[in-house]
Write a protein that binds this DNA or RNA. Structure first.
Lengths: 240, 240
DNA sequence: ACCTGAACACCGTTCAAGT
DNA sequence: ACCTGAACACCGTTCAAGT
């Protein structure tokens, strides 16, 4: 349906040369490469098999379904996110760097990023990441209730930002073509006309940073508010 | 791949009764109903045709491709968002009500909501909505640069929140099953164990409202800051 | 253990033909 | 104008068979 590059006919399978034995890791790498190249819609087990020089069915020996393979691709994407090591930098700065690296995944892998939004995070790998992030939130002085709120808040934000930035950057070839240029913008949509220059792709980095500022300012404020309340309730010692 | 209810065999086409003539509107309504019922993955032109009592190819007389039909379904979803009429309530409250109604679309149409995140908003209908929202931001006292920033910020937020809430509520049948219950949470992932109770589905409404609080507080603050700067630069008059 | 080949029940879309 | 039927080039996945 919406192949970013027209996929064309299936590539011929290269069999002659001695093929390295198929591994789960090699399949995942090839799958991500294939999704990057032709889009998630055009990605298929048959196409991936052809790219690897095997029949599609050989893949089922390593992954029991396409869904399981996509979960593995999702975890491959997660490897590109970076959380700086604990202790060296401020915990809030660690979280900010993580969110910035997360958004870069969307820019590097526009067709695959949706797997991080779409597929449920309930593999062991994602729980390790959760633990690290919640640890940073606790290090920053947030209690579990506030950690839960901000965990969701910046999770929503970074997921939505990735998806929206992708949509802004890439035209979908089968979408209804209207676009800014097809009608006199300032006449019918004066507000859109006034704001549009600020929404160009060149400004998306600054806009993303601004949203992070808002979120991290609120985290600092809420943390100080909560610790102030604790101090007022029992001055001189910290319950919990 | 990930049909929410197993779609089963295609339903038999009901031809005998005098079928009402096919209209674009009836097709869109049926398409949304079908997506709600079987999921976007299992939704097909053939299945939709069968539900409407026609051959799949009859649909191509009203929509030139599946992509165009999905754009129309996206606009149908947008009709369920509500922006209260101008003038009666505070502009920021109007925006907040809009965002709350937008999120409700995700809860009502978990399989279809992704169309609002995935497909580019460049139809005329979406420009009318943009204009109304940017008008409300201007009414609230934000200049175009700040309007652009907050427009993206809450857009990212509400899109990401809808997708994440859907993922939290619905199990994907083909995902790798790990889940909280399969290992001793508090031993290996103590922070996850401490925060998990606050992340239950029952708390998602409050968490969403908290994020909106953060965003709207920041809007008020930034607006006042900007208008204060204007006053300082030229006291006594407001250079628009 | 690892891979192939045929088969099943599907896809979106084209095209010529019917009314 | 509106719809059908056959066809084309694909899907994911099953199963029995090969090495």
């Amino acid at each position: 349906m919406k192949p970013s590059a027209k996929p064309g006919p299936l590539p011929a399978r290269r069999r002659s040369a001695a093929r390295p034995p198929l591994t789960a890791e090699a399949i995942v790498d090839a799958a991500l490469g294939e999704i990057d190249a032709v889009g998630l819609e055009a990605f298929s087990m048959r196409r991936l098999g052809a790219a690897l020089g095997v029949e599609a069915m050989a893949l089922y020996h390593h992954f029991r379904s396409k869904g399981r393979l996509l979960d593995a691709v999702m975890e491959r994407l997660l490897d590109e996110a970076e959380l700086p090591p604990r202790g060296e930098v401020d915990p809030l700065l660690r979280l900010r760097r993580f969110l910035e690296s997360y958004r870069k995944i969307a820019i590097r892998h526009p067709h695959a990023f949706i797997l991080l939004v779409n597929r449920r995070f309930n593999t062991e790998r994602t729980f390790v990441l959760y633990e690290q992030i919640l640890e940073a939130l606790a290090d920053a002085g947030l209690d579990p209730a506030l950690s839960a709120r901000f965990f969701r808040l910046f999770g929503y934000y970074v997921g939505g930002a990735g998806m929206a930035d992708i949509a802004s950057r890439a035209q979908q070839p089968d979408a209804t073509p209207v676009g800014l240029e097809h009608f006199t913008l300032n006449e019918r949509f004066p507000r859109v006309g006034a704001v549009a220059p600020h929404l160009r792709v060149a400004n998306l980095d600054a806009i993303f940073a601004f949203g992070l500022d808002v979120i991290f300012d609120a985290m600092r404020r809420e943390r100080n508010k909560a610790s102030g309340e604790r101090l007022r309730r029992s001055p001189g010692r910290d319950p919990s």
